[in-house]
Amino acid sequence: MKLHFLGTGAGMPSKERNTSSIAMKLLEERGTIWLFDCGEATQHQILHTTIKPRKIEKIFITHLHGDHIFGLPGLLSSRSFLGGEDTLTIYGPVGLKNWIETTLALTTTHLSYPIKYVEVTEGIIFEDEQFIVRAMLLAHVIPCYGYRIEQKPLLGELLVEKALTLGVPKGPLLGKLKQGENIVLASGETVYSMDVTSPAKEGFIVTILGDTKLCDNAIHLAEGADIVVHEATFDAETKHLAANYGHATNVEAATVAKKAKAKNLILNHISARFLPNDLAKLLQQAREVFPTTYMANDGTQIELKNKELV
Rank of each mutant, 00 (worst) to 15 (best):
L82N: 04
K259W: 00
A296V: 00
G180H: 00
N18S: 12
I302H: 02
T89K: 00
G210F: 03
I219M: 09
T121N: 07
K152E: 08
L304K: 11
G39F: 14
I124V: 13
V191M: 08
V229M: 10
I219C: 15
M194Q: 15
S80K: 00
Q45S: 07
L35C: 10
N264D: 09
A41K: 03
H63P: 09
H110I: 04
K263Y: 05
H63G: 15
H240W: 06
T121M: 14
D37P: 14
S77L: 06
G83Q: 04
T87L: 15
S78F: 14
M136P: 09
T109H: 06
R148M: 15
P93C: 05
K55T: 12
K176T: 07
H63W: 13
I302D: 06
Q285A: 09
L75Y: 04
L185F: 08
T207Q: 06
E252S: 05
R17Q: 09
G83H: 00
K178S: 15
F5G: 11
A225I: 00
D195E: 11
M136Q: 11
I90L: 07
E85I: 05
H230W: 04
P93V: 01
C215N: 08
N18Q: 13
K2Y: 03
L265Y: 15
L275F: 01
T109G: 10
F234Q: 01
G31P: 12
T165F: 04
N244G: 05
I219P: 07
Y147V: 08
E303N: 12
D211W: 01
L279T: 03
H269P: 07
L35F: 01
H44V: 06
G74K: 00
V133W: 01
H220G: 05
H140R: 02
R134G: 11
E40F: 14
F60I: 08
V206E: 03
S78E: 15
V184L: 06
A222M: 02
T107D: 10
N98E: 11
I100S: 12
H220M: 12
Y113F: 13
W99V: 11
Q151H: 10
K259N: 10
Q179A: 14
G224P: 02
S193E: 05
L88V: 02
E189W: 03
Y245W: 09
N268D: 09
A253C: 07
K261S: 14
I51S: 10
V141D: 10
L166S: 14
T212Y: 01
T50H: 11
I59Q: 04
L279I: 06
A41Y: 02
L267S: 12
N277S: 14
M295R: 01
N250Q: 07
I208W: 00
A218W: 00
D86E: 10
I266V: 02
D298H: 02
T207G: 05
N264E: 06
E122H: 00
L164D: 15
M194S: 08
G74H: 00
P169Q: 13
N264V: 00
C215W: 14
I100V: 04
L173A: 12
N182L: 15
D128Y: 00
R148H: 10
E85T: 05
L309Q: 13
K239C: 08
N217R: 01
P291L: 15
Q284F: 03
F204A: 13
I124D: 07
K213S: 05
S20Q: 13
A105W: 03
E237N: 07
I51M: 13
